[in-house]
Amino acid sequence: MSFWQHILESKQIFLKIVNKFRLNSIKGFLSLFLVGVSLSVAIAACSGNGASNSSTSTDAGGSTATPVAANKQDVRLTLVSFAVTKAAHDAIIPKFVEQWKKEHNQNVSFDQSYGGSGSQTRAVIDGLEADVVHLALGLDVDKIQKAKLIEPGWEKEFPNNAIVSKSVAALVTRPGNPKGLKTWADLAKDNVKLITADPKTSGIARWNFLALWNSVAKTGGGDQKALEFVTKVYKNVPILTKDAREATDIFAKRGQGDALINYENEIILAQQKGEKVDYVIPDVNVSIDNPIAIVDQNVDKHRNREVAEAFVKYLYTPEAQQEFAKVGFRPIEETPQTKELASKYPKVKSLGTVQDYGGWDSIQKKFFEDGAVFDQIQAKK
């Protein structure tokens, strides 16, 4: 019976009772008052039942759910990352989508953008509405923060200082390594030509520079010895390319140079695609740490923070880390799933980190700002 049918019937009952009782008697008045109260309670109860029925729904399985749960809109996330993570994310994202659907009965889809870390950073600052950024170095995330798109303290929001993938620097040689290059020190020899990008414009080139500097610092040399060594190496660089991709093309396709510095994971991925690459992992190396961050302004605008945060957390799971390891990234921590894969990587005896040099702000000021160490090295060439 509908709510309004209850009202009409109640009204008819009330009128009959009015005719039965005389209002000029106290007894009649009290009786009429009590009946009115009873009818009010009954009407309220009917109204409550109607509201309750309108706020629930039943899914195909027969269970009831609120409209929010039953009619959840699909969610879309935009992931912006540096190029060589694509293979890993292509394997990870479907697993996360499946898990979220199972646990929350909600569909999640992804827009993805891959490219050089520096260019991706500029794109986000210029208006590419990324919800999550996975970049080559923390300095790039800091730039997005300074543009007021990411809140300060982003590196403390997730485990391992928000580092979700990592690699080391590799020394790529000509087939058979005819110059016998095994250590960073070999790059300072007079008969060696090194191909690398400009650290003023390339993220990977900053890691390259830091690997060279670190090779002296980690073996007992101070800043002066490190400066002398790195100056010698850059005198052996015939051309500084704009980015790592151009450096690779000059080395691999144009046949220039005796050596190229690159990410270990990028070389492993190239080998998996059938390319033959000779390379050495120097046993004094630098941890190339790739951070992840939520772009606060955009997730708040898109109202998808809950899913964005869940996705980032999923990237730290053993299942996701296994996918990173499959395409050449070193696991951020050893788990049963990644142990076998990690055992295939050459051991590094001494591994430097960004924190050893005071973080990216300090590194940028000391080495790469105008007039800093790198400019001084270039002036001596």
Rank of each mutant, 00 (worst) to 15 (best):
V192G: 10
V192Y: 00
V192E: 00
V192R: 00
K193A: 11
L194K: 01
I195L: 12
T196S: 08
A197N: 00
D198V: 09
T201K: 15
S202E: 06
S202A: 10
G203N: 03
I204L: 14
I204F: 12
N208F: 10
F209T: 15
L210A: 12
A211Q: 04
L212V: 12
L212I: 12
N214V: 07
S215A: 04
A217N: 13
T219S: 15
G222R: 03
D223Q: 13
K225G: 01
K225D: 15
L227Y: 15
L227G: 10
E228I: 04
F229K: 14
V230I: 15
T231F: 13
T231P: 10
K232I: 10
K232D: 14
Y234P: 14
N236W: 04
N236F: 05
N236V: 02
V237S: 06
V237N: 14
T241G: 10
K242R: 12
K242A: 12
D243V: 03
R245N: 10
E246Q: 14
T248V: 07
F251L: 09
F251E: 03
F251D: 09
A252N: 12
A252G: 04
K253M: 10
K253A: 10
G257I: 06
D258S: 03
A259P: 00
A259I: 02
A259M: 00
L260K: 08
L260S: 06
L260Q: 09
L260F: 11
L260N: 05
I261G: 01
N262D: 13
N262P: 01
N262F: 09
Y263G: 06
E264L: 09
E264S: 09
N265K: 05
I267P: 00
L269H: 05
Q271H: 01
